[in-house]
């Protein structure tokens, strides 16, 4: 299991390749990558990502541990960047390895839902009109409901 919080860019190909190696008992590798999206009508200059050093690593590690146990994963990788990012840059990635694809997909989905609303990151969009903190979406919070165990 690997959890990285960094300002530097990451190499998606190299990370995926390294993650996929050495798991001969894992039949499925799923990766998800989040990219800074430009804004229609009001071009995005920079996306600034603030985080809570210490808590971020703790929260991500706990999510990864939970996912590993719940979906019988062989391995998990989470990389999340902070700092100033430009449109088209990769913000984050998750990779999951499981014996079968359904668990690998579900675990990646689970991790993304938790990461959106439970990892201490805050995004600020800077355009020619000024800077705006990105508001959290109710849909993101609602998405956590599907993972609640009865």
């Amino acid at each position: 299991m690997r959890v990285l919080v960094q300002d530097a860019p990451f190499d998606l190909g190299a990370e995926t390749q390294a993650f996929a190696q050495g798991h001969s008992d894992m039949g499925a590798i799923v990766t998800f990558t989040g990219v800074v999206r430009d804004l229609p009508g009001d071009p995005l200059q920079v996306m600034e990502i603030e985080h809570y050093p210490g808590m971020t690593e703790l929260a991500l590690r706990e999510m990864a541990e939970t996912a590993k146990e719940r979906f019988s994963l062989g391995d998990v990788l989470v990389i999340h960047r902070f700092g100033a990012l430009k449109p088209g840059e990769m913000i984050m990635m998750v990779a999951t390895a499981a014996p079968h694809r359904k668990d690998a997909f579900a675990a990646a989905d689970f991790l993304m839902d938790y990461l959106k609303s439970r990892a201490p990151f805050w995004k600020r969009e800077i355009t020619a009109k000024g800077a705006t903190w990105v508001a959290s979406k109710e849909a993101d919070e609602d998405a956590l409901g599907q993972w609640e165990t009865p």
Partner: peptide
Amino acid sequence: LSDFDTPLAGVQEVAFFPPMTGG
């Protein structure tokens, strides 16, 4: 992550912030 009724006895660090927007 806690709520506003959490006791503070023995606590070192409290942080306030808006809802998170990661991913």
